[in-house]
Computed example of a mutant assay.
Amino acid sequence: MPTIEEIRGAARGLEERVHRTPVVTSSALNELFGADLVLKAELFQKTGSFKVRGLLTKLLRLSPAQQQRGVITVSAGNAACALAWAARSAGVPATVVMPATAVPVKVAAARADGAAVELVDGDLIAAYERIRDERGLTGVHPFDDEDVITGHGSLGLELLADRPDLGTVMVPVGGGGLISGVAAAVKQLRPEIRVIGIEPEQADVVSRSLAAGEPQKLPTARSVADGLAAPVCGTLTLPLIQQYVDEVVRVSEAALVDATRLVMSRTKLALEPAAAAPVAALLEGRVQPAGVTALVVSGGNLDVTKLTL
């Protein structure tokens, strides 16, 4: 369980390395929902998502020997690009295992930041473990890692500093890394603030894990919000969610699409569907805003190759 001092230490380590992303408002959204909403625009973060906060924190805390040997992760998207950038920033060699079907622009982005990309047909985890062991690399989990979670807590500290009047924080949920860090930071300083997670109905592994009281695994996890389609809930993230998160709600695929279009049209923020999950929850009435409500806009890595004539 990351303490508030550990989260503050991670935030200091990230200063001048990552962006302090802005908190913006939209009168159009406020009028539509009859609420006082603020948007934490993490889509403006390095590599276009929040993930660099946690992954860079992890790399900075490795031993010199581990840094020299290099790191490896497995990801089809945002975590791959974030680790590649973080590794270059920290001067650490990085390998990323990605599916052969990964979006070409994301493969190209990881390679552009210097990562060795291994494209794999078949079992990604088996390939990841084999390469890790053969090369003596340090594995970096995309979300279920104490240092990664602690780094994500820096986002919560920024929210509290910029908007001390917060009443509610709404956070997209995949495997639980982001909401674990944000909730740990917010609740240790301001336990009265509500923290609510939002996940897709078709990828609801955290809701199922909370109901079961232990981490669950989904046979399939597919959603238009691919950044939230984690097939497993973390063994580290679940206890933090149980302790610090007030509620996790599910939203439909249709609401995710509608929310993405709504935010783009009303705010001109080019967010990805995963980042629209909080607005989807408002559209479907799954959450009633209380006080100033922060919506974490977690990323903006759209597949622009689909914008064709």
Rank of each mutant, 00 (worst) to 15 (best):
T3C: 11
T3G: 14
E5L: 12
G9H: 14
A10E: 06
E15A: 15
R17W: 11
R20T: 13
E31A: 15
L32Y: 11
L32T: 12
L37N: 09
L39M: 12
L39R: 03
K40A: 00
T47A: 11
T47C: 10
G48R: 01
R53C: 03
K58E: 07
K58S: 02
L62N: 11
L62K: 10
L62F: 08
L62C: 09
S63W: 12
S63G: 08
Q68G: 07
V71R: 00
T73Y: 02
T73A: 08
V74Y: 05
W85F: 13
W85G: 04
A86P: 05
A86Q: 09
A87C: 06
A90P: 10
A94I: 00
T95G: 07
M98I: 03
T101R: 15
T101I: 14
K106M: 05
A110I: 12
A112F: 13
G114N: 09
G114S: 06
V117L: 12
V117D: 05
E118V: 14
L119R: 14
D121M: 11
D121S: 15
D123V: 07
L124W: 04
L124N: 06
I125C: 09
Y128D: 00
R132N: 08
D133E: 15
L137W: 03
T138C: 04
T138R: 08
G139T: 05
V140L: 13
H141V: 01
F143C: 01
F143Y: 15
D144H: 06
E146P: 08
V148T: 13
S154P: 04
A161M: 14
A161V: 12
D162C: 11
R163N: 06
L166A: 08
G167P: 08
T168N: 11
T168S: 15
V169P: 07
P172C: 07
G175S: 03
G177R: 02
S180H: 04
S180K: 00
A185V: 07
K187T: 06
Q188W: 09
L189A: 11
R190N: 12
P191M: 06
P191A: 05
E192H: 14
E192G: 14
V195G: 08
I196S: 02
I198F: 01
E199R: 01
P200Y: 05
Q202C: 14
V206N: 00
R208S: 09
S209I: 02
L210R: 10
A212Q: 13
G213E: 11
G213Q: 12
P215Y: 09
P215H: 08
Q216R: 15
L218P: 00
T220M: 08
A221K: 00
V224K: 08
G227D: 00
A229I: 02
A230D: 05
V232D: 12
G234S: 03
L236T: 07
Q243C: 13
D246W: 13
V248R: 03
R250G: 06
V251L: 04
S252T: 12
A255Y: 01
L256A: 05
L262K: 04
V263T: 11
L269S: 04
L271G: 01
E272I: 04
E272H: 03
P273R: 13
A274W: 01
A275D: 02
A276E: 00
A277H: 00
A277V: 03
P278E: 04
V279L: 08
A281R: 04
L282H: 01
V287Y: 02
V287T: 04
A290F: 09
G291M: 09
A294F: 01
V296P: 00
L302E: 09
V304K: 13
K306L: 15
L307Y: 15
